[in-house]
Structures are given as C-alpha cells and as structure tokens.
Amino acid sequence: MSKKSRLKIQKIMRFIKKSLLYVFLIFFFFIFTFPFYYVFVLATRSYETIFNIPPPFTFGSHVVHNFNKLITQLPFAFNFINSSVITVGATVTRIFFCTMAGFALAKYRFPGRKFVYTLVLLILMFPRFFTIIPLFKMMVWLKWVNTYLPMIIPGMTEAIGIFLMTQFMANSIPDELMDAARIDGLNDFQILLRVVFPLSKPGISVLGTITFIGSWNDFLYALVMLPERIMQTLPVALSSLYLMAEGDFGALMLGNAITILPLLVVFVFFSKTIINNFLAGSVKG
C-alpha cells in the first residue's frame, strides 16, 4: 500500500515537473511571438485607436487608410523595390563569386593558397563596422552613394562566404570527379559552371539563406550609403518615417508589417531548413 502511494506521488511529481517545463516554454513562446502579432494588429488600426486605453488587441479596419497614408508619407513602392533588388543582387553575386573563390581554395594546390586562406580567416574576424567611415568616403569619391553598388559590390567576396564554400567543397566534392570532367574535355571554367555549382547546392543554400536575410535586414550600411529618400531600403525608410515629426503611427506599423511579412512567411514554411542553414553558417564560421 505504502509502495503504491509512493509510486503515485512520484507520478504526480513527474507530471508537475513536466507541466512546469511547458509553462516555461509557453511563456517564452508568447514573449517571442506576441510582438509580431501586435505589429499586424496595429497595422490595421487608426491612429486614434492605437493610442487608446486599453490598447487594442484585435484587428481593426484601417488597412486601406493606413496604406494611403504610408504611400503619401514614404516612396514606399521604391523602398520595397530597392530592398528587393539589393537583396537579390547581393545574394546572387555573393553566391557566384564566393563559390568561385572557394573552388580555387578547396580544389587547387598553388603557391600562396595557405596564405590566402589564412587571410580569409583573418578578415572573417574583423567586423566591417569599424571601417564604415573610410568606406563611406570612398563611396562618395566613386559616386556610388545613393546607388545599389555599395550595397552589393563590396560584399560579393565576403570572407564568410568564401570560408563556407571552401569548407563545403573540400569535404564534399571528390577530386576524381574533376579529373573525369577534364578527361571529358571540359576546361576549368566549364567545370565550375557545370559540375561544381550543381554539386554545391547544400553549401549555396547555407550561404544564400544567410546573405538573403542579412541583406534584407541590413540597416546601418544602408543608412550610410543611401541617404536619398527614393533610394532608401525598407528599414531605413521606416526609421526615417518614425523620426519624422508628422509620421503616422498606423502607417508606420503597416510599413513595418509589410517589411516583416515576406521573411515571416518563408520562415514559417521552411523554418527547419533556415535554422539549420544559419547554424551551419555560424558554427563552422
């Protein structure tokens, strides 16, 4: 009898323990998701109801109104296009040039290879932020300010990309395959395009994920390089609307929701792949 009741107590204790773990997890679940829900709530609210007490918890009907406000206060279509072009441009070019450089470092033996690889590792540890001032000045000289170029060109051969692709190819593209391709009469550039690129898909997916999301979300660099309203990316445009005295808060939140939404949708569907890609991109880096 006493053994039975002790077992029962143990069972109850285990149940309580497990429930506490769920409470902990669900608490943080709300902490992390609620602000997102709230962006979308506020995006549908009029300026007046946003600042009501108690604050609104449910969706309103002011989307169209907020949208009209948004496009009068910001060149929002341009901002969206700028963000899209820069993000796609930066991602595609970085994948291309980093795969090319990684191919050279992983699959060739040439004098100075070690030196170049060490250099890549060194650059990897140096945050670009510390040279933002001379970079800005250079872009002024090049007349690249207020163009897409400073947002795309300097990052094309980013060290993290070269490092990831080198690692990936060294481990997963067999040398024999290249020899076979050479015997088939392909030159090395053709090998890069027809053999290496298709085989590097997993590595490219990691680099592509990091670059795409990083580029879409970039603020500081865009803030410096794209001062012109019509050239601004979404985060910069949102910040300038916020800092504008007469900026409408409902419109701001709608712009905010539109900025967040694309990544949010993609992430919810491919969260496992994206999380794993980020992990592969960092733990190796």
Binding site: F28, F29, P35, N217, T259, K272, I275
Partner: peptide, 26 residues
C-alpha cells in the same frame, strides 16, 4: 519542439528596426 524552436528563432530573422519600432510602442 519544432514549433517552439520556430517561434524562438523568429526575432533573429527580423530586422532590428522593425523590432525596435514595435518595442517603442510597447
């Protein structure tokens, strides 16, 4: 676990400005 991981990771893929703006309201 996957649902929790997805939710916890959400802030990391979101740009800092959007986050700062909503927290300004909060």
């Amino acid at each position: 676990r996957d649902v929790f991981k997805t939710a916890y990771f959400l802030p990391y893929i979101t740009n800092t400005i959007s986050i700062a703006l909503i927290f300004n309201y909060i």
